[in-house]
């Protein structure tokens, strides 16, 4: 078995995931891209299990299991947040998510409100 094949697959999948996170405007699609990234990591871990002689056997696969559990937890909470956002804004566009509490509406993709919030 040539391990470079699954490794390269994982690398390309990771790149696609990063591209998707930065490219997509819909929050659910962003989460899908995040899943791609996590799966790429999982593939690396499982492949590493074959190439690395670890002190504890199958540790790569155990880690992959843990990552799957984490991904599941993350997707649950993340989708709850997305749905709450949808209830408040009637939109799940990530552009409209402000990172401060003061501005009720942010405009454009570079939403950066006035710097008076720094003194609070």
């Amino acid at each position: 078995m040539r391990p470079v094949i699954p490794y390269v697959t994982a690398a390309l999948l990771f790149g696609l995931g990063v591209y998707g996170v930065l490219r997509r405007r819909n929050a659910v699609l962003v989460l899908m891209a995040v899943e791609l990234m996590l799966n790429a990591v999982n593939l690396v871990l499982v492949t590493a299990d074959t190439t690395v002689r670890a002190a504890l056997p199958h540790s790569g696969q155990v880690f992959a299991l843990f990552v799957i559990v984490l991904a599941a937890a993350e997707i649950g909470v993340g989708l709850a947040i997305v749905l709450q956002l949808y209830r408040l804004r009637a939109s799940v566009t990530v552009d409209d998510v402000p990172l401060t509490e003061h501005e009720p509406t942010a405009t454009g993709e570079s939403a950066s409100p006035a710097p008076e919030g720094a003194t609070r």
Binding site: V21, L22, R25, V30, V94, D95, D96, V97, P98, L99, T100, A106, E109, S110, A111, S112, P113, G117
Partner: peptide, 8 residues
């Protein structure tokens, strides 16, 4: 205080 996409 960048919006989410820029932060990501």
């Amino acid at each position: 205080r960048a919006a989410l996409p820029r932060a990501a």
